[in-house]
């Protein structure tokens, strides 16, 4: 139970961080923040070598972050009309664009966090004295 709560807390914190990163520097914010998160998580929590847990967390958080931002936009303007119009321009259902808006940051964050974790693990290994 405690571990679940901790994980949820972690997820919320990463989501908020990703929202802030998006607001500050746009879509690159997702990649940079997730990468940093992956490095930090690997370094501080001694996760599995591939940083799976950190990457999953980043991925879900990124999807939640952009979903939250979409909901915030929907509360402030005619988002459904815009989705429909953009879908017509793209020649696809508008929902495809919405799905892309959720999937894109999720993939970006997952991959960036994974790479961050791996890099962190690599750096840790490099810094350890070689044993014979």
């Amino acid at each position: 139970m405690t571990r679940i709560a901790a994980y949820l807390g972690q997820l919320i914190l990463v989501t908020v961080a990703l929202i802030a990163a998006t607001a500050a520097i746009g879509w690159w914010g997702i990649a940079i923040a997730a990468f940093v998160w992956g490095m930090w998580a690997a370094h501080s929590t001694q996760q599995d070598a591939h940083g799976t847990r950190a990457a999953t967390c980043a991925s879900i958080a990124a999807a939640l972050a952009w979903t939250s931002l979409l909901l915030w936009t929907a509360a402030r303007g005619p988002l459904p009309a815009l989705i429909t119009a953009l879908g017509q321009i793209a020649g696809a259902p508008g929902s495809v664009l919405v799905v892309a808006t959720v999937l894109f940051p999720a993939l970006l964050a997952w991959s960036a966090a994974t790479v961050g974790s791996a890099l962190s693990a690599y750096l840790v290994r490099q810094s350890l004295p070689t044993s014979h």
Binding site: T22, G26, W27, W28, G77, L79, L82, A100, F104
Partner: peptide, 18 residues
């Protein structure tokens, strides 16, 4: 796609200024 889908600065933001 990156800047376009960004919900803060991208195309979706247009709804907020309608």
């Amino acid at each position: 796609l990156g800047p376009a889908l960004d919900p803060v600065h991208g195309i979706w933001a247009v709804a907020r200024s309608a």
